[in-house]
Amino acid sequence: MDQIKELGATLTGIEAVMDLDIMRRDIAELRDQAADPDLWSDQEHAQSVTRKLSSLESELGKVEALRGRLEDLEVLYQMAAEEDDSDTKAEADAELDTLAGDLRSLEVRTLMSGEYDAREALVSINAQAGGVDAAAFSQQLQRMYLRWAERHGYPTEIYETSFAEEAGIKSTTFAVKAPYAYGTLRGEHGTHRMVRISPYDNQGRRQTSFSGVDIVPVVEQSDHVEINEDDLRIDVYRSSGPGGQGVNTTDSAVRITHLPSGIVVSCQNERSQLQNRASAMNVLQAKLLERKRQEEADELNKLRGEGTSSWGTQIRSYVVHPYQMVKDLRTLHEEGNPERVLDGWIDEFLEAEIRWLRKAEAGEGDN
């Protein structure tokens, strides 16, 4: 059957790109590390090893399961033909459609081949124009990404959340601790726009608000980001929750300002000031690494005679009134149920972004 042959060719291509032999070798090495009784003397490294092992085992399992399903499907069609059984044929057709969709989703993983795509991700969200509505929208976006991560079983860690006085949040930074989280989420970088009837406007007027989303890869030991201590201003303060209430009785939260770049990062999730400072430095290193990478890319574009790419532009609109629609302004992918999207069902948007980015970057490489 032609469709099964096409799916088989697609799966063979995916297997080649993912290089299953290397994947199996990496799994074996990580299993050896996980079996080392001294591994947990470094908690952070141990968690990184176990996360990578779990992710690789899951990916390999998906590919092997798809190969098994494809072989079973071929047998199912043969049985339906030999027995002239319409019910078996209908079952095979349904599985064919499902299998094709699962293969498309897996194929997206092979498109993530950028330098940092395999990294974990740091997500920062900042309320922009729109007052209290922007703060409320920013909190909705935070929940959207956390729900998406939870649905996929990806661990997350919130480093800092600055709550607004009336409702919502001014800003937040959190990590998605899963391999390829950066490659999956990096297309979310930019300005998100919400249009709705404001629940905070006593005249019930329509309000447009904006929130900025920043996605950077988590730094690793191999990265070199030189930070001069003299370039830092470090402030300590008391962690606060919604409505300004104190959540700690000590000044354990840490805010670091990198004076040359103006980048400000905060961390308040730990009770120890020392731990918060270490986490905040990791966030600062990640943001400086991304800035350095972007500056290098901009310089290359100038040498090519191209305009610099703008990552800060509006990327997606969430319209709740006068109609209901979420639309990506680059890929043109859209959904008619904003509530579902804001509940974390964003995989189709992410898939469309990954394909769009791959196409755009391939175009740049041809210049």
Rank of each mutant, 00 (worst) to 15 (best):
T88Q: 10
T88G: 05
K89T: 00
D93E: 10
D93F: 02
A94L: 08
E95R: 07
E95Q: 13
T98Y: 04
T98N: 09
D102T: 08
D102W: 07
L106Q: 13
E107R: 15
E107T: 15
E107P: 14
L111F: 03
E115S: 10
Y116V: 02
D117G: 01
A118E: 06
R119G: 00
E120K: 05
L122D: 07
L122F: 10
V123E: 04
V123A: 08
I125Y: 02
I125S: 05
A129M: 00
G131S: 00
G131D: 01
D133Y: 13
Q139M: 11
Q139T: 10
Q140E: 14
Q140K: 12
L141R: 03
R143D: 11
W148G: 00
A149G: 01
E150C: 06
E150G: 07
E150R: 13
Y159G: 11
S162A: 14
A164T: 13
A164L: 13
E165R: 12
E165H: 11
A167H: 04
G168H: 04
I169Q: 03
S171F: 05
T172L: 09
T172Q: 13
T172H: 09
K177W: 09
K177N: 15
A178Q: 03
A178E: 05
P179G: 06
P179C: 05
G183H: 12
G190K: 13
G190Y: 11
T191D: 03
T191R: 03
H192Q: 01
M194V: 14
V195T: 12
V195S: 07
I197G: 09
S198Q: 05
Y200L: 09
N202C: 05
N202F: 09
Q203G: 14
R205I: 12
Q207L: 11
S209G: 13
V213T: 09
V213Q: 09
D214Y: 13
P217Y: 11
V218S: 12
V219T: 13
S222W: 08
D223N: 08
E226P: 04
I227V: 15
I227W: 05
N228D: 14
